[in-house]
């Protein structure tokens, strides 16, 4: 039983981490008032860039860096379109997703079927071998620790620094922030790029460690789930984290139930992760006032200094 629980815990962290990266990035973007629906596309471009570089150079971590940069680069296209050229954010974001899906498929064509050395889970001599605790705490993929570090950073930046306050102020009322001298467009550029980098890193994690391969559309809709997570988590980083792990956990529990032969239709079990995550997050975020307080007031609206 303990053995099962430990395995389930490790698998849950591994499954949730893809969503943690993508959703935390999108959270920062949205906190600055920008809605970027291109997460799926950015993840795929991150995944393909990471895989190609890892495949060519033999250095998987160089691949992770490339994936991060590729995600950021793709998001810059979105930033130029929506922040400088004032294009509609929803349309531009959807276009970015489609573009990213196509671009990744095209650039990855000659790497389909290649095999790389994946980034393996940590094996700290001594620590990882400790009974129970070793496997609970010290034997995960390095990406899992990276995502937790990212969570701490985002939480600290948004709610513990002056720069984070400015970013949130811009997300609430870009006009006021502009009036008191903050550079709205520059900050939003930064937030969008950060979101892109995180999505790219999430994609890199998939292609280098979680399901080490490249095939077209391999993120299989996780970008859209990450987007939904941000909303249901009411723009709070810890809830994003909880939601991502909950989603992973319910997916895995339903697989465990199936493998044990529990008599519940698999179609129902397949729906559970979505339903459970939405219900739980909706319940903990049900306070209407809190929702209004947390949702960035200017989300999705273009800003121009002359407005």
């Amino acid at each position: 039983m303990i053995e099962h629980a430990i395995t389930l815990f490790a698998l849950t962290l591994a499954a949730g981490t893809v969503l943690v990266f993508a959703a935390l990035g999108e959270l920062v973007t949205e906190k600055a008032g920008v809605l970027n629906l291109g997460v799926e596309g950015m993840m795929l471009v991150g995944a393909v860039a990471a895989f190609i570089v890892a495949d060519q150079t033999g250095h998987a971590w160089l691949g992770a860096l490339a994936g991060t940069l590729a995600g950021a680069a793709l998001s810059l296209i979105f930033a130029v379109l929506t922040l400088s050229l004032l294009a509609n954010q929803v349309a531009a974001g959807l276009a970015l997703s489609l573009f990213g899906i196509g671009l990744s498929a095209f650039t990855g064509l000659s790497h389909v079927g290649h095999v790389i050395d994946p980034i393996a889970p940590l094996a700290l001599p001594g620590l990882s071998d400790l009974p129970v605790i070793g496997r609970l705490l010290f034997a995960h993929s390095p990406f899992v620790y990276l995502s937790l570090l990212l969570f701490a950073l985002v939480q600290w930046f948004l709610f513990g620094t002056r720069a984070g306050l400015v970013l949130r102020a811009i997300g609430e009322s870009p006009q006021s922030a502009h009036a008191i001298g903050h550079k709205v467009i520059a900050v939003r550029y930064g937030a969008v790029t950060f979101g892109g980098a995180c999505a790219g890193l999430g994609g890199a994690y998939m292609a280098l460690a979680y399901a080490p391969m490249w095939t077209e559309g391999m993120t299989a809709g996780r970008g859209w789930i990450a987007l939904a997570l941000v909303v249901f988590a009411n723009w709070k980083p810890w809830r994003v984290l909880a939601g991502a792990y909950l989603f992973g956990a319910v997916t895995l529990v339903q697989f465990q139930a199936q493998a044990m032969g529990v008599d519940v239709p698999s179609q129902f079990l397949a729906m559970l992760p979505y339903a459970a995550t939405i219900i739980v997050l909706a319940l903990i975020s049900r306070d209407a006032v809190a929702i209004r307080r947390n949702a960035p007031a200017s989300l999705g609206r273009a800003f121009h200094a002359d407005d």
Partner: peptide
């Protein structure tokens, strides 16, 4: 048997295999 309810999702197929 674990049903993943998709023809193609490398992440999910792997989770099912792990399970």
């Amino acid at each position: 048997v674990v049903w993943v309810n998709t023809w193609y999702d490398p992440g999910r197929e792997r989770e099912a295999a792990d399970t």
